[in-house]
Design a protein around this nucleic acid. Structure first.
Lengths: 225, 225, 225, 225
DNA sequence: AATGAATGAGAGTTCATTCAT
DNA sequence: CATGAATGAACTCTCATTCAT
């Protein structure tokens, strides 16, 4: 047997095909599951179909995730819940005006969530949450609550720094969220579109809504209203 | 057809409860079905439960509606599709400005659809449409298309009469629809609400959005506004 | 339509084949289940097989019993647990000597339980109890405990009336039960019998054991021991 | 066969743990399997669990034993079947009275089998034998038959030497076996015990039963006993 | 017209066994 | 030799739909 040419051959690259597959499996399954959950809903997605799309057999799915519900939670973690720490950090370090911060927030939300398949998970929970109370509770705890927290901190920053009027922050959260939710839902609403394509330009829609919201939030710059 | 023995079976109120119930059956089933479809979704609603809520047996349900899908179609007809002729007529006879017409449209839509259980059917189609292509097609044909037609005629009237700028009417339809859809969806989204209650006031939200839309549609007035 | 000749035609005999079947179903299923549980054990008995032996389809079984475990509990109730009230009453009214009472007890136990398929349920619980804790608990509560109570009362009666020595009744229960359990087990032990038939004569075995037990229990009639 | 490089691989204790483990594997697997089969039954014991308890992987189990059934047979051989040659020899060389021989037999049976985990295998076969006909046949051939043979020879010796009455030996076998089987079964019957502990003292029970059996077997002595 | 007992395809999940590494 | 990822048949339970009554 010839000596490996590089040390790394021994430490990194010497993996069998099987090993590589093994490490890739959870990710492949999560991706397949995300696709199918978003496409068909939680109840209507058959476990075997998820497995098949990931290129494995039914049994293999349950090797990695102990049940369909746990698979769903893992999908939510991977695509939404697990990313809040990063997002929180990003906003902790933000230094501009709070208006810009909110604009930035809406924009990156669209880029990272709204425009991706992950937005389908929100639609899914709105549709099927009532039928799967444990999943709904999980989603509220791991996604809705942290999301609200993040927004609350932004809005509170605006109020604290005198940029925003002393509004009821908890109430204002919904004003900010509303257009996001709308976009997520319309994006996944096949049956509603006569010609298959929604005519709304999400970025433009979001920009307009953002300004509307900011108009309502901001302290009038000089004169009294 | 032999004459009824009594003046009018239809008007005669001296009837056993049983007889009345008999004729009311389909209506009761449709109402029960609407409730349950909206509450749990199409797939998750069990036929037997619909029958039970209507106070009849499983078999009776299938006596009136040959399948769960046909039952759903009947519910959609009863609550949405079948009412467009009446609505169309109403707008044919409208005589005020097109801006007022649109304001009126949004308002009565909220009263007659948005704020009622019927709005849940739209949410339902957005959630499960992909899993039931025949229902989706039916819904598009019988609800979405007529709705778009109605709006298109209103908008075209505005353009034709010089009240609205010569916009792309097909595109503008979505601008008008967007807030309606948003309200319908948020209304049925239990899982998304941390504290159980959305803080949005639908009437106010709709009024503001209506004015925003009109602001974008109207020809800038020559004289003062 | 000719008038029924007897009133009973109307009240009793006017049953369709279907109705008769319907009433017989639970009993047929319980009997099939008893047979199969005793023959193959709880885990190894497939629900569909029970249904098939009762002449119905898989689904029908679950129409009458919500789960395999509940089916098992119903079988235990039907064959063992539900008969203790009757047995207790019988012994409450017994008037002879306690020795005869115990002899009678052993004999009727063999006739009504030991020699019947019901004895297989005890074997089953001993074999599989550990794998189905809920069933084991149910069996202990509904069968073992009442059985012990019944015996305790008999033994206590003997002690109270001076027929038996002042023994530890709770301990003596096991002495009485031991031969019953042995017979139940050997009866269902196919693998242990070389030639297919156990050579033990249960009635004789039980009679001998009973006298042995009584010998140990009874106060020596006259002289001191 | 080439000579081992060291004096004796078998006796040489200077070995790595790994090497020792290697050779101990089958034994460790058999021990783990015995534990689990006795604890949970044959069907309810998962192969993987056996492997895990033996500290090896699932694959390794199937390297040593081609199937779960073969594993079970090996466990039976190790703990019961394989020991009959030794036992037979022991009894061939016995020189005392046949009564003492039988007393000795019962006692050592309790010491070597009844009181050990091996007795669980008998209970297991009685419980699950019908579901695994090949195992049942194996058990009958390798354990039940040799056991009966051994007893038959003892009893025949007693008859031949005039110590026992000229009884039907084949029938008497069951009289001798009965208390052994009873003890084995009661020992593994968790579900049957209300208070968790059976009150029977096995050694005492066995001694009494032995004397009872001998009483029935022995020729009434001419002189005093 | 009305019933509800019966059906059976189909879903999630388990586990003995295989085999590439 | 040893591993453990992968398989797929088998099992329990659900529910839309049928049909004898």
């Amino acid at each position: 047997m010839p000596a490996p040419r590089f040390l790394s051959d021994k430490l990194c690259s010497v993996r069998t095909k099987r090993e590589r597959r093994k490490e890739a499996r959870p990710g492949e399954l999560l991706e397949a599951a995300l696709d199918l959950f978003v496409e068909k809903g939680f109840a209507a997605t058959r476990s075997e179909e998820v497995a098949a799309r990931a290129g494995v057999s039914k049994g293999t799915l349950f090797l990695y995730f102990p049940s369909k519900e746990e698979l769903f939670k893992a999908v939510v973690n991977e695509n939404l819940a697990g990313r809040f720490t990063e997002w929180n950090k990003e906003f902790d370090e933000y230094e501009g005006s709070t208006s810009d911060m909110l604009r930035y927030c809406m924009r990156v939300w669209w880029e990272r969530v709204g425009s991706t398949k992950a937005s389908g998970l929100t639609k899914l929970m709105m549709s099927e949450g009532r039928n799967f109370p444990e999943l709904a509770e999980f989603y509220r705890r791991e996604v809705v609550r942290p999301g609200h927290e993040l927004l609350r901190r932004i809005l509170q920053r605006g109020v604290d720094r005198g940029e925003f009027a002393p509004i009821d922050v908890d109430h204002a959260i919904y004003t900010v969220i509303a257009p996001m939710i709308f976009l997520m839902l319309i994006k996944h609403a096949a049956a509603i579109c006569v010609d298959g394509e929604t005519e709304i330009d999400p970025e433009k829609y979001l920009a307009i809504q953002t300004e509307t919201v900011l108009h309502g939030l901001c302290v009038p710059p000089r004169a009294s209203e």
